[in-house]
């Protein structure tokens, strides 16, 4: 179905192309429209989120790199960037490792209180964020974790685990258990079995769970606003104060840089995938 069969009627052809290029095109445009908006605005010569007449007439005075300059020279932004890259990976590692272990445990055939446990583990995703933030704020203050690096990391890790659990258990559902039995019958101990047999099979789930966990922490503003203090000011926090205290397209410049980085990363991943397919002798499907 990926291509239109040769015997398709005119009606089918029209529908096929309408669907593919008009309907899906529109939806995909909807998805990236905000991104398309922010990129030109980040080169705005003025300090507002506004397409100025100068910009619309494409006159060079309407554009400037000053917001990029601001981002790279302003110590607040640099500190926030650094903090984000200190907090998000730590939270990701914590939630991915604990989450993967738990997902493996949950996919065993005999787990007492499975439903209840699952509900607890998924809860950080379903509890409205503002409740989580306030609750953790009161509680962490009492145990001295509020305003500390680890406080924020722990909170973000908790918010990220449901995604890891969901993605990893999903890959485990299709997992053929006879494979581990086969490995065991051939004398592999459970640890070897895990790393040689199970791990390679669930790795896609782990990776996508880790990505979600990373984004959760990297883009999280409500909890960090409550739990963090000056030392843990992350990019979203800096953006939030930016939006509240002085509108500055610097946050758009930051976003544009992030988009550029992620396009590069995603493309590199895609290229690597194609390369490995070619090396393994698979024809690109």
């Amino acid at each position: 179905m990926s291509a239109l069969p040769a015997y398709a009627s005119t009606g089918q052809r029209i529908w096929h192309y309408t669907f593919r290029y008009v309907i899906c095109g529109f939806i995909l445009f909807f998805l990236i429209a905000p991104i398309l908006t922010i990129i030109p605005l980040s080169f705005n010569a003025e300090n507002f989120f506004t397409f100025t007449p100068a910009m619309l007439s494409l006159s060079p005075e309407g554009y400037s790199l000053k917001h990029y300059q601001d981002f790279f020279t302003n110590s607040d932004w640099q500190q926030a960037l650094k903090n984000s890259f200190l907090i998000a990976p730590a939270a990701t590692i914590l939630s991915t490792s604990l989450g993967t272990l738990a997902a493996i445990g949950l996919s065993q055939s005999h787990v007492p209180f499975r439903r209840a446990i699952m509900a607890i583990l998924i809860s950080p995703m379903i509890v409205p964020l503002i409740i989580s933030a306030a609750g953790m704020y009161f509680f962490y203050s009492r145990i001295g974790l509020q305003g500390t690096y680890w406080g924020v990391v722990l909170a973000h890790a908790a918010l990220g685990t449901p995604f890891v659990i969901i993605t990893v258990t999903a890959t485990m559902v299709g997992f053929d258990r006879s494979l581990t039995r086969a490995a065991a019958s051939m004398g592999a101990d459970p640890v070897t079995t895990f790393f040689k047999v199970q791990m390679p099979l669930i790795i896609p789930g782990v990776v996508s769970g880790a990505l979600f966990a990373f984004i959760t922490s990297f883009d999280e503003v409500v909890v960090v606003l409550f739990l963090g203090s000056a030392g843990q000011k992350t990019l979203p926090w800096q953006m939030f104060t930016g939006l509240r205290e002085q509108i500055s397209p610097t946050i758009l410049a930051v976003a544009t840089i992030m988009v550029a980085i992620s396009i590069v990363l995603l493309s590199v991943l895609e290229m690597l995938r194609r390369r490995s397919e070619r090396l393994r002798g698979l024809s690109p499907s």
Partner: peptide, 14 residues
């Protein structure tokens, strides 16, 4: 996935 990588605040402002 691209919108995912763009801050929620930025997307909302956009």
């Amino acid at each position: 996935l691209l919108p995912f990588w763009t801050s929620l605040l930025v997307r909302t402002s956009a």
